[in-house]
Design a protein around this nucleic acid. Structure first.
Length: 114
DNA sequence: ACAGTGACAAGTC
DNA sequence: AGACTTGCCACTG
């Protein structure tokens, strides 16, 4: 259909790995999915994730900690709620990465499969 | 075939 | 801190 299944399974699987209460950026997800330099693809593909999959899309942010959606937009508000629900503070459409960025250790990375 | 678009990122000024 | 440029490439018309 409208998107590449191979990319989708890799990306969705990686996004599922981001732990509750932490966030990651698009570039990191791309790297860990075996798609270095393909940050844009992550956002593109995540739109197609079926809702019943409960993909934690809201844990993925831009490289500077900003939400991908513009401030005040319905999606940004929803994302802010989801994050607040698990303890991640969003102020002025941005998250403090020093505090909430997911920093996987080598063990986690070596166990990652897709 | 070709040009525009986009849930991005990093570098330069 | 912004604004602008370049790199990325799947998808769409």
């Amino acid at each position: 259909m409208g998107y590449n299944r191979q990319y989708a399974s890799q990306i969705w699987h990686t996004v599922q790995k981001v732990p509750v209460g932490k966030v990651a950026n698009y570039g990191l997800i791309a790297d860990l999915s075996g798609l270095p330099g393909r940050a844009r693809l992550v956002g593109t593909i995540m739109q197609y994730a079926p809702s019943e999959m409960n993909l934690p899309w809201y844990r993925i942010l831009k490289s500077n900690g900003q939400l991908a959606f513009s401030k005040g937009s319905p999606m940004a508000l929803k994302q802010t709620e989801f994050l607040a629900g698990e303890g991640v503070i969003v102020t002025n459409n941005r998250v403090n990465l020093n505090q909430f960025l997911w920093q996987p250790d080598l063990g986690e990375l070596l166990n990652m499969q897709y």
